[in-house]
């Protein structure tokens, strides 16, 4: 009985190396029930992987926000003046 329990535990018990790609994968598609359970068990015991999961969540939210049309990033980047002139001339010629 004890032997069976131990083998069940070792089957359920993922390492951090096993869990890390699964945490990432979980963000992109649904994983199987068993996989999901294994991840949950590992995360319940491993604080460090929980931090990792949070970090990936933060990166995702930042990225989505970065994608907005009016997001004020690269605020100093402006279309170079010569490019603007060129485009204005092109617009004038093609109107």
């Amino acid at each position: 009985m004890e032997k069976m329990m131990n083998s069940l535990l070792s089957w359920l018990n993922l390492t951090c190396e096993d869990t890390s790609p699964l945490i990432s994968e979980m963000m992109d598609h649904r994983v199987s029930f068993i996989k999901g359970l294994k991840i949950k068990i590992h995360l319940a015991m491993c604080e460090v992987c929980l931090y990792y999961k949070e970090q990936l969540g933060i990166i995702r939210n930042l990225s989505q926000n970065l994608g907005r049309e009016d997001f004020p990033v690269n605020i100093n980047a402006t279309l170079p003046a010569e490019s603007k002139e060129k485009i204005k001339k092109m617009i004038e010629a093609n109107k």
Partner: peptide, 13 residues
């Protein structure tokens, strides 16, 4: 080891 960034993922955006 990954560290605790001490940020709320929802509010970090």
């Amino acid at each position: 080891m990954p560290k605790d960034w001490r940020l709320d993922p929802e509010k970090s955006a």
